[in-house]
Design a protein around this nucleic acid. Structure first.
Length: 933
RNA sequence: GGGCGGAUAGCUCAGCGGUAGAGCGUCGCCCUUACAAGGCGGGGGCCGCAGGUUCGAACCCUGCUCCGCCCACCA
């Protein structure tokens, strides 16, 4: 088998497309529901078809792919379900923005059919782009199963769920106080409203008593709503107004008379202690009106404009304009008592940013109490676990305080509600399209104009993608999913609702574990946003982007001026191409248990360097594997004397590999992605590259004249290097699939292995190769080498210069190890060592730099004229003082009777041993100092 | 107003009862034929503050001070 050579630098742009194609064609991404192996399933949170993937998607999906690839390599039937979400209101918002920009039109100018046509076109474009991105990232999604939330199967699931819930009385229609978005002209759910405190004013108004005996002062942040007041409320215990309760006041500007009522919800200490009641446009006031049976006047319409029965003067004004007009008129009429600045909580639509208008409207609702109880139940029973665990509380708290869910929307892009209204007033809800009223039989029926909240279909997603409501084989195999990986920001929107629906319809939780990822921010901890111009686009990181390209794109997307400026600041030199592996590995390595991941190009660059390091280690291996026979080596390794035939460094690296495999496995099992990535990083860079490859070099070097023993040794070292590398590639493959596959394909290896790395078996720790003794010996060699290098560096010894060094030790064990590994040690530290059995006396004669390794080994490095006695004294004095401090501390601890009496025995023994070592070390350092004269 | 999380090296974070760690940055020396996207070495920490528990606390408990989230119908 001939070795192959690799270029000096890893070039992902050349490598990635090749394997993408091969994997696609291989069918490895597909998991069959009829396969005999144990199923492992993840449903990809379907990205919105609003644009392209952002870094949050890249993070979540990379973690999913790591899990899927890892489990696939462990032999599971690993299924990862792809798909996209129609994202009703988000798509509306985007399309309408486009309409406004290109001619000031609204969806109503276009009409329902034409709007839907455009929405579908948008979906095709955006969905295609998302697919493309997912493929480029190397995600091993089961493409044959790909779904969309508005496809046939999903539509069927939505209808089934809606009708069933309606039959069960869990979906109902009612007139309730809802959140109205006057810009999108639709109702939105409580979750889609963000309440922010904004600066506004508090107006004090004078309402005169109808009987002319006085007046009452009310304070409000929304004076325009006074047009719809139907009462003034005071607290029943408020003595100031004891006599006023029951009186009528004349409502200014309208002339209407409204009563003064008593209700305990009023806060006596706020303002005047009297509050105007506008039942139709304030949730508090509405509830008050219900308690007291007050009339309701709706004076704001769906467009956010004042309407009758408000006085004609104001009708047609937008809320903001009406406020100005009302205040002016009140002032003119002498009803305005005062204005002061006031912080007001203002609800804004999450999507459009419009100020939410609380309104009374007839809508469809989903009753949540019973559904929530089911979801809470599976969590309490431990059927679904949250990782990190802290989220359990957040989930439970919301679920136990949940309110009914408004599911209808006055939008077009989505699932139309399967309810038909008849002229007789009856509503027919049906799984199939209705042509005749279910009550009177009339053909005068028309389908409800509204559509369902996007999250209604999302809630069914883990089931509907597997064929529900049909009892399919896929559903049986892959439901419940093994894990859901998503962001904590959609626990309520999505996770909770999937659990409610899943438990309700199947009796089973949709997923055993919910793993919540961190939120990706920029390096300053600010959320990435296009308006801020701090977005790092995953594809830019993968393929690279020039500053010009980034600016051009921002311009095409109509990003604000400030964003352009920020892009110039953040990405002055653009983004260099890093490759998908570097990005994937970075995301894993940075994904600690924290709530945020601060990502920057610099950090990805560090991990790209790691990928390149592995590349070059492999390059070295391939350059030195000529003549290597994997079959022969495998047979040797399986033999009874295999271990004895290997050198200590070989046994050491194989032992370290076992630890690494165990660590990676354990970390992934616990969703500690950064620990898994870092274990591999540490092993590859600091064990395999820094030490093993260096120690292997002399053995790999071809002798001029053939020597049977050397050739045999060389073959063994080649075998260990190839094996360790091959196993490392397997460990790393879920994180960095491309580079590992590329190297693996070129590596000489036994012929019975499969055609792709992605279907090899994931390494597990093999205790037979764990070798504590080799690790102990290697540590001594490393420590001595490091100490020698330190002395060399301290005295600026040229790297080319070999130096004679005496290694003096009182320990026969250490002496034996050092003797055996003198050659590799000399090679690694660039020294010519001489072992000396120390007799306690310090070497006399020429001045030398000295240091200790542990308590046993004294390193004496004669440097001839190089040594600076004063500097050496300072350095040694520092070491001595540190040792003295350690000795002191240990002395004190062991002199403490309580410690001896109460601490565990092994701890005491450990401390005693340390004291002995530190004392000896200290003693010899002191002697070394003395020897300097 | 409730609830949750965080404060450890210059930066980003691990560690969560028994010798304070990593990555990046920084400083010094090196283009040593796998890799300068590299090698070798160094410096750098009252582990937020104050108490307590313990033989022993970065770690457990209490309080405080800052940051940051989430939830909530107060005019």
């Amino acid at each position: 088998m001939s070795s192959q050579t690799l270029p000096k630098q890893y070039d992902p742009s050349e490598v990635e497309p090749r394997w993408l194609r091969l994997w696609q064609e291989s069918g490895y991404f597909h998991a069959d529901e009829t396969a005999p192996s144990v199923p492992y399933a993840i449903t990809l949170p379907p990205p919105n078809v609003t644009g392209s993937l952002h870094m949050g998607h890249a993070l979540g999906s990379t973690m999913q792919d790591i899990l899927i690839r890892w489990k696939r390599m462990q032999g599971y039937s690993a299924m990862w379900m792809p798909g996209t979400d129609h994202a009703s209101i988000a798509v509306h918002h985007l399309l309408e923005k486009e309409l406004r920009r290109s001619g000031g039109k609204t969806r109503f100018d276009l009409g329902r059919d034409e709007f839907m046509k455009q929405a579908w076109a948008w979906k095709e474009k955006s969905g295609g782009r998302i697919n493309e991105q997912e493929k480029l990232m190397g995600f091993s999604l089961d493409w044959a199963r790909e779904r969309f939330t508005m496809d046939e199967q999903s539509n069927a699931a939505v209808r089934e769920a809606f009708v069933t819930l309606h039959e069960q009385g869990l979906i109902y229609r009612a007139k309730r106080m809802i959140n109205w978005d006057p810009v999108s002209e639709t109702v939105v759910s409580d979750l889609e409203v963000n309440v922010v405190e904004e600066s506004g004013s508090l107006w004090a108004l004078r309402y005169p008593y109808a009987d002319g005996t006085g007046e009452i002062i009310v304070e409000t942040t929304r004076p325009e709503t006074m047009l719809g007041d139907t009462a003034v409320a005071v607290h029943p215990d408020d003595e100031r107004y004891a006599g006023a309760i029951g009186k009528m006041v004349v409502l200014p500007l309208t002339g209407r008379e409204v009563p003064i009522v008593a209700d305990t919800f009023v806060d006596k200490t706020f303002g005047s202690g009297a509050v105007k009641i506008t039942p139709a446009h304030d949730p508090n006031d509405y509830e008050c009106s219900q308690r007291l049976g007050l009339p309701i006047l709706e004076i704001i319409d769906a467009k956010g404009k004042i309407c009758a029965p408000a006085p004609a003067k104001y009708v047609g004004m937008l809320v903001e304009a009406a406020r100005k007009a009302v205040v002016a008129d009140l002032e003119e009429g002498g009803f305005l008592v005062g204005i002061k600045p006031h912080k007001v909580p203002r609800g804004r639509s999450e999507r459009s940013g419009a100020v939410i208008e609380p309104m009374l409207m007839e809508q469809w609702f989903c009753k949540t109490a019973q559904l929530a109880a089911g979801a809470v139940g599976v969590v309490e029973a431990g059927k679904t676990k949250f990782v990190p665990e802290v989220w359990t509380k957040t989930f439970m708290h919301w679920m136990t305080n949940i309110r009914d869910w408004c599911i209808s929307r006055q939008l077009w892009w989505g699932h139309r509600i399967p309810a038909w209204h008849c002229t007789c007033g009856a509503i027919t809800v049906s799984r199939t399209d209705v042509t005749a009223c279910g009550t009177c039989g009339s053909a005068e029926v028309r389908q409800d104009e509204d559509i369902l909240d996007t999250w209604f279909s999302s809630a069914l997603w883990p089931m509907s993608t597997l064929g529900w409501p049909q009892k399919t084989r896929a559903l049986q195999a892959f439901y419940p999913n093994s894990v859901l990986v998503t962001g904590p920001d959609i626990i309520f929107f999505w996770v909770a609702r999937m659990m409610m629906m899943g438990v309700h319809f199947t009796g089973k939780t949709p997923f055993r574990t919910v793993y919540l990822t961190a939120i990706v921010t920029d390096e300053n901890g600010d959320k990435m946003s296009k308006t801020k111009g701090n977005v790092i686009d995953p594809l830019d990181v993968v393929r690279g982007a020039s500053l010009e390209q980034m600016l051009a794109r921002a311009e095409a997307e109509h990003a604000p001026e400030a964003a352009q400026k920020n892009i110039k600041k953040h990405f002055a030199k653009g983004v260099p191409p890093m490759g998908a592996d570097a990005l994937r590995f970075s995301l894993a390595a940075l994904n600690t248990s924290g709530r945020y991941i601060r990502l920057s190009i610099d950090r990805v660059e560090g991990y790209r360097n790691f990928i390149n390091k592995l590349w070059n280690a492999s390059r070295f291996a391939l350059m030195n594997l000529d003549g290597f026979d994997p079959e022969r080596f495998e047979a040797q390794l399986a033999g009874p004397d295999a271990k004895a035939a290997l050198g200590m460094p070989e046994r050491w690296i194989l032992s370290r590999l076992q630890h690494t495999a165990a660590e990676v496995d354990a970390a992934l099992e616990a969703y500690r992605f950064s620990d898994a990535a870092n274990a591999i990083y540490q092993f590859v860079w600091h064990e395999l590259c820094d030490w093993y490859i260096e120690l292997a070099k002399p053995h790999l070097h071809q002798p001029e004249t053939p020597d049977a023993e050397r050739a045999a040794r060389r073959h063994l070292v080649q075998g260990v290097l190839a094996t360790v590398l091959e196993q490392t590639l397997r460990l790393l493959h879920p994180f960095a699939p491309f580079v590992t596959e590329e190297i693996w394909q070129k590596l000489p290896k036994p012929t019975q292995l499969p055609a792709s790395l992605m279907v090899t078996i994931f390494p597990r720790r093999d205790d037979a190769w764990v070798d504590a003794e080799a690790e102990r010996q290697m540590k001594l060699v490393q420590d001595v080498a490091v100490a020698c290098r330190m002395l060399r560096a301290t005295y600026n010894v040229s790297p080319a210069q070999k130096i004679a060094v005496s290694l003096r030790t009182v320990s026969p064990l250490a002496a034996e190890v050092l003797a055996r590994f003198q050659a590799p040690l000399d090679h690694s530290a660039k020294i010519t060592s001489a072992l000396v059995a120390a007799d306690g006396a310090v070497a006399a004669g020429e001045l030398a730099a000295k240091t200790m390794v542990g308590a046993d080994v004294e390193i004496v490095m004669p440097l001839g004229g190089l040594i600076d006695v004063a500097a050496e004294r300072t350095r040694l004095a520092k070491e001595i003082s540190k040792a003295a401090k350690d000795v002191d501390g240990l002395d004190k601890k062991l002199g403490n009777a309580d410690f001896i009496a109460r601490a565990p025995e092994e701890v005491i023994a450990e401390q005693r041993a340390r004291l002995v070592d530190e004392r000896a070390r200290h003693q010899r350092l002191v002697e070394a100092l003395a020897s300097l004269g």
